[in-house]
Design a protein around this nucleic acid. Structure first.
Lengths: 201, 201, 201, 201
DNA sequence: TATGAATGAGCGTTCATTCAT
DNA sequence: CATGAATGAACGCTCATTCAT
């Protein structure tokens, strides 16, 4: 039986750190190998291609997003609208923490890769769309709850578009935060997210 | 009064067409030269670097955006809130036209380049920030007008953040439109933009 | 008396299928392992090197050639000249069968590998020469018989060169059949083989 | 106006020397650059791909073959059958000359590349077929002349196949000469070529 | 003023092979 | 007995840029 090691994991973690920061074309396979401490020839034993490594990064990043942002919110007993605000606050917190360590604000990994590769890599693009639909799923759930609790003034049929608007706003905020390298953008923009749901009074 | 060669212009137009579609790293200098029909050696006679060509693309694109979107809205006699909706409608129209010709939906050139190069090229990043502040200027003007016309329920001091929220939303919508290659996103999301301004009743 | 694993045989069969089709450099060790369903580490347990696997392919292919072409001809009671024609006909039949299944015409495995590696791998080259001398042995036997039966107008001392000429012709026909992907070349060229032996009348 | 140099020619000459000797996969782009004394990045300025360089090698090699072998024979006043023999003698001479300098016997460049890439590169394969049809053209012309001069006992309709048989024999002889690294093969096999044409008496 | 020719560094990927287990 | 894991060198090719003319 062959040797065992955490090389694959190290490579994935390295990619999950460097790719969201610099984008797909901004990080080379060689650099990933150097940083992860694996030899260049080993990359393609561990992953079939750079594309597939990035797919794995997207999946891992989604797992983290779910675990550190969505699941805690889901299992809390916050009101639906408070959940939306909490989503922004948690995102802000994570970025502020990174930022305080001198690291640049990443914004949203999915948006960064989706935007960069929209016209160039359909496999990655589809994966990003898939993850965005998971975001929208949570948003729609919260808005539906708010609708049922009569917290918002919205016709029922507008709920899906409102969830999508929330996704757009979220990704826009993340993008602007990235470009301005300013983690506080998330907290300053949280209020706008609530207004998108058109709360009563 | 000799005729000026149009090589520089052809190159700029080519870049303004290809770079927003495929991003900074997605288009090479050589390809730009081939498509524009100029010789590779001439590139660096016309522009000091790829970076500076892209700066010129950003400036040209901003000119176009101002001429085809902002100025017509400014000189119209629409109400402030209608101006916001009109901004989305005009953007939608432009993208839908391109899309009907089989071209991919670009989203916002500034966001695409800003997001891709945020951590890699401070010159381009600063130019994008500069242009975004021009966007915000228009938005703030409209919202201020709406505030003065008592169309919106917003404390005066929230106007700047609301303008910024509008920018975030705008860029988020453009990004999602790009990723889903769906020009209609703009019109479907227009309503949300208005809600961000918290209109009365 | 434990069961022997058939991994070695599967690998050999896979190589005997892929290498003649695509040549030595056209098939990689990894692909051979994938197709044969063995693990890459096992390759070098089963064979000391890619070179030696190919040597085994050459030997196996020679066995097949002897069994399916030479031996049936030897044990037939055809006249010597008919044996030469039969050699082309059998070769044609084998290639036509493969071709009818949509597979490319291989020509002669020995010539393919000998030609490709003549200046690069002396071990394989020598093996090919060795097998060619077995071909020549059969040819010389048939021509000698024809000489003794007074079927051909050839001085006795020209027999070895004529046998070699037959080998050259055979390999040339196979090569052209491969390049033109045309199995019928063998049958159309059979007549020429006879003329090489200079039959009487 | 840019600098001028013979880099392209040097690269082509280097390739025309190394590729026939070691085959397509046997020579790398880097090595070609090193030997030709050009920098690795320049290769793709001079040729669009390795494949196209080899196409140029094939064309150049054909030019040489025509100039040093076919044209002198054509313009001689040898009899048709003597032309066939002369073809082998000239080929033998060229190879023997190379061989006497310690260089390996190449055989036929077209056959080497055609055989190696028959199933892998249709562009190169087609070029080889094209050149082979030029060979056949000369052969057919000679045989037709011999037929008209009543030098050979051959029905008229067998001329095309006989020309093709001559091509097969030629390429087979070249291949065996390569594999045995023996230039004399050409002269020893010349007689066989004549017999393929079935000369009278 | 304009450009044909060239460049070194780096791209993502594949190679035949090794070795601890 | 057999293999999962790994490797360094090389693969064909593209990059943004330079410079003599």
């Amino acid at each position: 039986m062959g040797r065992k090691s955490d090389a694959r994991e190290r490579l994935l973690e390295t990619a999950a750190r460097l790719v969201p920061e610099r984008g797909y074309h901004g990080v080379g396979v060689q650099e990933l190998c150097n940083v992860a401490g694996i030899k260049p020839g080993s990359f393609y034993y561990l992953f079939p291609s750079k594309q597939q490594l990035v797919i794995a990064v997207l999946e891992k990043t989604w797992e983290d997003t779910r675990n550190y942002i969505f699941t805690p919110i889901q299992t809390s007993n916050l009101s639906p609208l408070e959940k939306i605000r909490e989503f922004f606050m948690r995102t802000c917190h994570l970025h502020a923490h990174r930022s305080s360590e001198g690291k640049p604000v990443l914004g949203c990994t999915f948006a960064v890769l989706g935007g960069e590769l929209a016209t160039q890599d359909q496999v990655i693009n589809r994966k990003v769309q898939e993850i965005f639909s998971l975001f929208t799923g949570y948003f729609e759930e919260w808005i539906t709850q708010a609708y049922e609790d009569e917290l918002i003034a919205l016709p029922k049929e507008r709920i899906p578009d409102t969830a999508k608007a929330l996704l757009c706003y979220t990704e826009g905020v993340a993008l602007i935060a990235r470009i301005h390298n300013d983690a506080e953008t998330f907290s300053r923009m949280a209020e706008g997210a609530l207004r998108l749901a058109n709360p009563k009074k």
